[in-house]
Design a protein around this nucleic acid. Structure first.
Length: 735
DNA sequence: CTGCATGCTCTCATC
DNA sequence: GAGCATGCAG
């Protein structure tokens, strides 16, 4: 029975067995963090310290929650049911449903998604006749969310933190928005934690209830918690003090969505007598990969400090490769060539990942992969429940369940088209405000009168009658049958069938999938909760495809081979991030680089380009400062642009080579900033032969053209296909 | 009330 | 360069 402890290394075992009192487990990348969490969970149960429902286990993502549930079940050798194991939001929602009346809601309150939130806020602003162009709802929502992340209800926002939003105060608008949410019997994502924390804070009865319940608390990814999550945890843990947080300050990459790295840095001060356990033995990566990652992250100042070392016997491996390319086309070509070479050596495609800083970078790779027929999958993008057809169908269900949900009603009232346009909608809104009733009720009153004429009146009456029928059907025929009927009778399916667009068939498929998914739930309410809080697009089957995703999306994953393209100043570190957050953001970008490298088990290949297209035009770029921060002895340089640079070749760069070992880094580091700068544009020597007006030239990217004007080293050239451009004379040659 | 042209923006992205 | 939101014609 206790052999589960014998499988741990000493540090892991210490983290598992220190059951009582506050514990912070600093778990470096690949050091068995999940194993510690799940084993600790099982250990508490098997040592009879608590029943399953007396442990609160919190994660950030559904994926992590699912994984933990499965692994606990394996350890216990029985299904892990009835646990308080889930995401912060799901667990907070569970508390709020139970005590809904204490937060001025009923237990069937709606959880608004970001799209609904924005529409609601926009309505609030428009009601005050604000110019939503100059002062965007998005911008205000950002401010409100930051307040919510920091556990501030409108009244708690200090005056000096208020900002002008047009002629209004952001704080007042926030208050109006909260009031609308209350009237709609709805909450947004931020409210789940905000209201739950507020409830625990002001209601001793509720707090006592949860104190009695939760004897042990486990928290995953603690470095990603924001203030309100931290308060929520602290309130729940203040009695038992049995809280164990697992995290890695070096992997804190979510400050932009409110995470406070200070939460983990301050743990000892927050929980006096806390035990700190460091997990530093890495079982994932080769020694050179670990050395490169450690050397890089050592440039950060605000860290608790730990050093990864190989935890396995045989950790030898190749150096991290740093490849220099001419442009992003060549880069994607080289990456695909390398992947094909690996495939020929019987490596799995699904063990290769391309990790980029920003979404737009995936496109070059996608195009290349499509061109050569290399199977790939993109992680991220639209999730199932974010698709328009799914949101519409759910809005119909919300209207049935929750007549006060104006946003849902508004969404479906004219979908499919019922002749109810802006005029009709305005009439309904005015009536709703005048009579102080929900939109659906106002619509019913209007339909009974002669306010609307013709098609609009017919359409509205028809919808209302059908809604009443569907509500009855919900009671008698059950939710699954009702959804199917509804999609049919509303004309919603027909609407897509009539559409000739190529994605229409897929949308109908999605709707069928929705009906299937609904069958897994006993109640409609349970399903709606699932859809808004749990459903993720984790339909990763085991087909063998290259992974293409952002660095953020890659956190927590691992691959044999990891490609890290686009390591250029401005792209990575991201310029906008630096502009907004300065030195602090630079450290976060560096942590992101660290996360990227530590995803690799066998091979990490970093690359950068001399030229990159930003929006419409080409810009030359400088290698990322992170490249020169990598310890030289664990790096191998390669790539065509690197060759051209070192040998000062004036000729056009040699194209992608599958084998990178073209150049070795010698004693002197090649990529200090000054040299990088000088390489940036004048990578080739200034030309001796001046190109003059009328000369026919060739440019690597733009092709053939004729010089229109020459101004020192700058040439205006009319290219045959690319149009007129101004380029440096170093980049063209006589044709 | 709906379809099309024009204009604006443009990291990361969980729940 | 492209997608999305808004503005005007029919």
């Amino acid at each position: 029975m206790s052999d589960y402890l014998a499988r741990l290394n000493p540090a892991q075992r210490e983290a598992v067995e220190a059951v009582d009192g506050p514990v912070l487990v600093l778990a470096g990348a690949g050091t068995g963090k999940t194993r510690v969490l799940t084993t600790r969970f099982a250990h508490i149960l098997l040592s009879k310290r608590a029943f399953p429902n007396q442990i609160l286990a919190v994660t950030f993502t559904n994926k992590a929650a699912r994984e933990m549930r499965e692994r606990v079940a394996t350890l216990l050798d029985r299904p892990a049911e009835g646990l308080w194991l889930g995401t912060f939001h799901a667990l907070a929602a569970r508390m709020l449903r139970r005590y809904a009346e204490r937060v001025e809601r009923t237990s069937n309150f709606s959880i608004l998604d970001p799209d609904d939130q924005l529409r609601l806020l926009k309505q609030v602003m428009e009601a005050r006749r604000m110019d939503t162009k100059r002062f965007t709802p998005q911008g205000l929502m950002g401010t409100i969310q930051r307040w919510k992340d920091r556990a501030m209800l409108p009244d708690a926002v200090p005056r000096e933190q208020d900002v002008d939003w047009g002629a209004e105060s952001a704080r007042d608008l926030y208050a109006a928005y909260q009031e609308r949410l209350r009237a709609l019997n709805a909450v947004d994502f931020g409210d789940l934690l905000l209201l739950a924390t507020d409830l625990l804070k002001r209601d001793p009865e509720v707090l006592a209830h949860y104190h009695r319940r939760f004897r042990y608390i486990l928290v995953d990814e603690y470095q990603d918690t924001n203030l309100v999550q931290y308060y929520w945890l602290r309130l729940l843990a203040q009695q038992s003090k049995n809280i164990c947080c697992v995290g890695d300050d070096d992997q804190s990459i979510y400050s932009w969505r409110g995470a406070e790295i200070e939460n983990i840095l301050r743990f000892e001060a927050d929980f006096p007598g806390a035990k700190i356990v460091r997990l530093e033995a890495n079982y994932r990566s080769t020694a050179p990969i670990l050395a490169a990652a450690s050397g890089l992250i050592a440039h950060n100042e605000g860290r608790l400090g730990k050093t990864l070392h190989p935890g396995r016997e045989n950790a030898e491996g190749d150096n991290v490769e740093v490849m220099a390319f001419w442009d992003s086309d060549e880069e994607s070509r080289a990456v695909s060539t390398r992947i094909e070479a690996l495939r020929r050596e019987n490596h799995k495609l699904a063990e290769c990942a391309v990790l980029v800083r920003a979404g737009f970078q995936t496109r070059a790779f996608e195009e290349r992969f499509i061109a050569i027929g290399l199977p790939y999958r993109i992680i991220g993008g639209l999730r199932f429940y974010e698709r328009a057809e799914i949101r519409d169908a759910i809005a119909y269900l919300r209207v049935l369940v929750q007549p006060a949900d104006d946003l849902a009603f508004e969404r479906i009232v004219n979908v499919p088209k019922r002749g109810l346009g802006e005029t009709a909608l305005r009439a309904m809104h005015e009536r709703a405000r005048a009579d102080a009733v929900p939109l659906a009720e106002a619509a019913a009153r209007i339909a009974a009168e002669a306010t609307l004429r013709g098609k609009a009146r017919e359409g509205l009456r028809d919808l209302l009658v059908k809604c009443a029928n569907w509500r009855t059907a919900l009671k008698h025929d059950g939710h699954v049958a009702t959804l199917a009927t509804l999609l049919d009778e509303s004309g919603y399916i027909a609407m897509w069938q009539e559409q000739k667009t190529p994605d229409a068939a897929g949308r109908i498929e999605n709707l069928k999938e929705l009906v299937r998914a609904l069958a897994d739930f006993d109640t409609l309410e349970g399903f709606l909760e699932h859809v808004s809080l749990v459903m993720d697009n984790d339909n990763e089957i085991n087909d063998d495809k290259v992974f293409l995703m952002t660095l953020h999306a890659a956190k927590g994953l691992e691959f044999d081979t990891v490609f890290l393209p686009g390591w250029e100043e401005g792209v990575f570190p991201n310029q906008r991030s630096l502009d907004e957050g300065g030195a602090k953001s630079l450290e976060e970008e560096r942590r992101l680089a660290y996360v990227g490298i530590t995803r690799a088990k066998q091979r990490a290949i970093i690359s950068h380009c001399a030229n990159r297209r930003i929006y419409a035009n080409w810009q030359s770029s400088v290698p990322s400062r992170f490249i020169e921060e990598l310890p030289a002895e664990f790096i191998t340089l390669g790539g065509s642009a690197s060759l051209a640079r070192e040998q000062r070749l004036a000729a056009p760069p040699v194209f992608a080579t599958a084998t990178p070992l073209l150049a070795r880094r010698e004693a002197a580091p090649l990529l200090n900033q000054r040299e990088a700068d000088s390489w940036n544009t004048p990578s080739r020597p200034a030309r001796a032969d001046k190109l003059t007006e009328g000369t026919r030239v060739f440019h690597q990217k733009f092709g053939y053209g004729v010089v229109l004007d020459a101004d020192d080293d700058r040439l205006d050239i009319r290219f045959e296909t690319a149009g007129e451009k101004r380029v440096l004379d170093r980049f063209v040659e006589r044709a």
